[in-house]
Write a protein that binds this DNA or RNA. Structure first.
Length: 633
DNA sequence: ATGGACTTCGTTGACCTGAA
DNA sequence: TTCAGGTCAACGAAGTCCAT
C-alpha cells in the first residue's frame, strides 16, 4: 500500500497521473446515467470529505443525491448515457458470452432505498402506514445490508427445517421471529399473491405493470405526493415489499402482489410474518438449488435476527436491547457490531442467546442443539467458536476434568482427563441411558445415548401439532386424534375409508381437516393458489418419519370434463406450510362453481391391497415423483 | 521485504440471457 | 413473446495474493 501511495505522490509531482494498469477489455460496456453521475459525485465527495474512507459512504451519499434529483436534473446524465449506448450498439461488435462471474451476494433488498422514502413521508402518510400495521418500518435505521454476513447466513440457512445452523446450534425461524424483528404481525389471514388476472387488470394498468413489473421509480414518484389515502397505502406496501420485505432478483416489484392489495382496508388483517418467512425460504431455497444467483426475500430480517440472537458482547457487557429490533440497529450500531465480529475472528463466534424473551421462538426448548456432539459437527473448524467438540482442539480437551454432566439439551458432556480423545467420549456416553425425548407424548423407551438419537428419528410418538390456526395443542398423532375429535369435532369432516365423499372448499379455506371414522387418523385436504388455478393435495398428520401411507383419489368435475389425481399421502406432523414436494392436482379457476367454491370428490383407502388392482408397480413408482401435475380427463 | 496487480465494498440502470 | 434473473459499467481505499 505504501508503495502505491509513494508512487502516486511521485506521479503527482511529475504533474501527470498515470492510470493504474487494468485488465484489457475489448470494448467495455457503456455506463448508465447513474454511473456518469456517481463518477462526478464521488470524485467531488472524496475531495471534500477526506476523512471518509472507502466507497460505502460516498456511494451512499451519491445514491441519496441521485434520488433527490428531478428528472430534469438527471436529464444531463441520461442524455449522455443514451448517446454512448446508441453509438455502442451500432458500432461495437457483438460480445462473446462470458462465463458467469462468481461474485458476492446479489440482492435487491435495499433498506436504504426505503429509508429515504420514509424520511419524506408526511404525518398523515405515517399515520396511514401505522393504520396498516406497518408502523414499525417507520423506525427503520439500517440503511445498508452487510452482504458478507448475509451470504454467511444464507450458507447456513436450512430451508427444509427453516432454521439457521450457526454457532453450533440449530436456531429455528418462525413468523413470530419476523414479528419481533420487523414488527409485522405474525397472525391473521394468509397472504395470497395469486388469483385470476382479470381481478387486478385495472391495478396493473394504473401502475403501468405490463411485462416488466412495477417500477420502483414510479412508486417513488407516487409516494412523493402528499396524498395519504388508498392509493398511497397501496404504493407504500408495494414499495416496502419490493425494496425490503419481499424483493425478487429484479429491481421492479412483482405485479402478483396486487392480488392482495385490491382491498386496502384489510391489510392489517394479514399474517405478514408468515408471508415474509415463506418468501424468504422460497428464495433461499432457489438460491441453494442454483436456480438463481440473486437472493430475494427479506435479508434485512436475516441480518438483524442474527444480531439479536447471537451475542458477541464481552462477559458482563450489555446485550442489544429488546423491543423493536428494527429500530435498535442503525448504521453506527451495525458498524460497531461488525467490528466486534472481526475481533472475534469472524461470524459465528458469538453465543446464542437462550433468553425466553429474546425472540419469538417460544423458549429454549425450541433452540435445538445440533446432533453433532460428541463425534460430529457442522461446517469447518474456522466457522465456529470454541464451544463445539473437535478432535484437534487442545483448548477444549484442556477444559475436561473428569466428570459427566448433562447439559440443557440432555446431551452428555464428558469432562475427562486432559488427554482424553473423542473415542473415549463415545465409550463413556454409551453407558448413559436416557428416556426418549417423546416421553411426555407417551413413549416409554429408555436408550443408550448413541441409540437414543437413532430411535428418536423414527419414534412413532414424535409430536404433531393441531392444524387449526387458533389451537396450539401438541401431542403424538394418537393423542392429536383424540384431541381433535373431542375439542374440534365440529371443525373438520369425518369420513369412511374407501368411500368417495363430495367436499366443497370456500375461497378463504386453505385446508380442511378430514378424520377417519374407523381409526381417527387425521388428514388434511390442502388448497393452494397458483396463477391459473387452485392446487389441492392430501397429507396425513403423522410424524414425517412414519412409513405409513394411504392411497387417495381426488376428482374435480365441470360439465363433461373431469380432472383426477391418484396418489399416496405423505406425512407431515401438522399443518402444511409453503409448497411441499408432494403430488398435487391443479384445478383451473374455471372449475370453481358460481360461489367461487371448489368442489372435489375425495376418497382415501386404508387397504394397500386395493392399490394393486388400480396401479401397477410402474405407476406406483411414478406417483412417488413429487411436484407433478397429474391430470387425467 | 517489497512492489504491483487484483479484489472487495455499495449503488443504479440498461441491456443481455434463457426459461417457459 | 413474455418475464424474471444476471451482468457490468464507475468511483477510492484498503486488503489480499503472488512474484521477485
Amino acid at each position: 500500500m505504501m508503495g502505491k501511495r509513494k508512487l502516486e505522490e511521485l506521479i503527482a509531482l511529475e504533474g501527470k497521473k498515470k492510470k493504474k494498469k487494468k485488465k484489457q477489455v475489448a470494448t467495455p460496456r457503456p455506463a448508465c446515467s447513474w454511473v456518469y453521475f456517481s463518477r462526478e459525485f464521488i470524485r467531488e465527495y472524496s475531495a471534500s470529505h477526506p476523512e471518509s474512507s472507502g466507497l460505502k459512504a460516498a456511494t451512499k451519499a451519491a445514491s441519496d443525491a441521485w434520488k433527490s434529483m428531478s428528472l430534469e436534473e438527471k436529464a444531463k446524465y441520461t442524455k449522455r448515457s443514451r448517446e454512448v449506448w446508441d453509438n455502442y450498439l451500432t458500432t461495437a461488435p457483438a460480445r462473446a458470452p462470458k462465463p458467469r462471474k462468481q461474485t458476492n451476494l446479489v440482492t435487491r433488498c435495499s433498506p436504504g432505498r426505503l429509508f429515504n422514502v420514509l424520511q419524506r413521508l408526511t404525518p398523515d402518510q405515517k399515520a396511514a402506514v401505522r393504520s396498516m400495521g406497518f408502523g414499525s418500518l417507520l423506525g427503520l435505521r439500517c440503511r445498508t445490508l452487510r452482504r458478507s454476513l448475509c451470504l454467511w447466513l444464507l450458507e447456513r440457512f436450512n430451508t427444509a427445517r427453516r432454521s439457521l445452523e450457526i454457532c453450533g446450534e440449530r436456531i429455528p425461524l418462525s413468523p413470530k421471529d419476523v414479528e419481533l424483528v420487523m414488527g409485522l404481525a405474525a397472525s391473521g389471514k394468509d397472504v395470497v399473491n395469486s388469483g385470476p388476472d382479470d381481478l387486478i387488470v385495472e391495478l396493473r394498468n394504473s401502475y403501468n405493470a405490463t411485462n416488466h413489473g412495477i417500477s420502483v421509480r414510479l412508486l417513488e414518484e407516487r409516494l412523493a405526493a402528499p396524498e395519504a389515502g388508498e392509493e398511497f397505502k397501496r404504493s407504500f406496501i408495494l414499495y416496502a415489499l419490493g425494496t425490503v420485505l419481499c424483493p425478487t432478483a429484479r429491481l421492479d416489484v412483482s405485479p402478483s402482489f396486487l392480488h392482495f392489495l385490491t382491498n386496502m382496508d384489510t391489510i392489517h388483517q394479514y399474517n405478514w410474518g408468515k408471508f415474509l418467512l415463506d418468501r424468504l425460504v422460497r428464495e433461499v431455497s432457489r438460491f441453494h438449488q442454483g436456480k438463481q444467483r440473486a437472493v430475494g426475500g427479506c435479508l434485512l430480517f436475516l441480518q438483524l435476527f442474527y444480531y439479536e440472537t447471537v451475542s458477541v458482547e464481552r462477559p458482563g457487557s450489555l446485550v442489544p436491547g429488546l423491543g423493536p429490533c428494527l429500530s435498535s440497529w442503525g448504521e453506527e450500531e451495525i458498524t460497531e457490531r461488525e467490528k466486534r465480529e472481526r475481533e472475534l475472528g469472524g461470524y459465528g463466534f458469538g453465543e446464542v442467546l437462550y433468553k425466553e424473551s429474546c425472540l419469538g421462538t417460544e423458549s429454549s426448548r425450541c433452540r435445538a442443539q445440533l446432533d453433532c456432539l460428541p463425534s460430529g459437527r457442522m461446517g469447518t473448524s474456522s466457522e465456529h467458536g470454541p464451544a463445539l467438540g473437535h478432535e484437534g482442539n487442545q483448548v477444549e480437551r484442556d477444559q475436561m476434568n473428569g466428570e459427566i454432566i448433562m447439559d440443557e439439551a440432555n446431551l452428555p458432556i464428558y469432562l475427562g482427563d486432559k488427554n482424553v480423545v473423542c473415542g473415549d467420549i463415545e465409550v463413556v456416553v454409551e453407558s448413559v441411558r436416557k428416556a426418549c425425548q417423546n416421553k411426555e407424548y407417551g413413549c416409554k423407551e429408555t436408550l443408550d445415548y448413541m441409540k437414543k438419537s437413532e430411535h428418536e428419528e423414527t419414534c412413532s410418538y414424535a409430536p404433531c401439532t393441531c392444524p387449526l390456526l387458533e389451537c396450539d395443542f401438541v401431542g403424538s398423532s394418537e393423542q392429536l386424534s383424540l384431541h381433535f375429535s373431542s375439542k374440534h369435532w365440529d371443525s373438520g369432516r369425518r369420513f369412511r375409508y374407501n368411500c368417495p365423499q363430495a367436499i366443497s372448499l370456500g375461497m378463504n379455506e386453505p385446508f380442511l381437516v378430514l378424520q377417519a371414522e374407523e381409526d381417527g387418523i387425521l388428514f388434511l385436504l390442502n388448497k393452494g393458489i397458483e396463477a391459473i388455478g387452485n392446487t389441492i393435495m392430501i397429507t396425513c398428520i403423522k410424524p414425517s418419519s412414519s412409513k405409513e401411507t394411504f392411497l387417495y383419489d381426488l376428482v374435480s368435475g365441470r360439465g363433461i370434463s373431469s380432472l383426477r389425481l391418484k396418489s399416496f399421502t405423505q406425512n407431515f406432523p401438522g399443518r402444511v406450510e409453503g409448497f411441499p414436494p408432494v403430488d398435487f392436482l391443479l384445478i383451473p379457476f374455471r372449475f370453481l362453481n358460481s360461489s367461487r367454491q371448489l368442489n372435489v370428490e375425495v376418497c382415501i383407502w386404508n387397504s394397500t391391497e386395493l392399490v394393486h388392482p388400480i396401479l401397477n408397480s410402474a405407476h406406483q413408482k411414478q406417483l412417488k415423483r413429487p411436484n407433478r401435475y397429474i391430470q387425467m380427463i
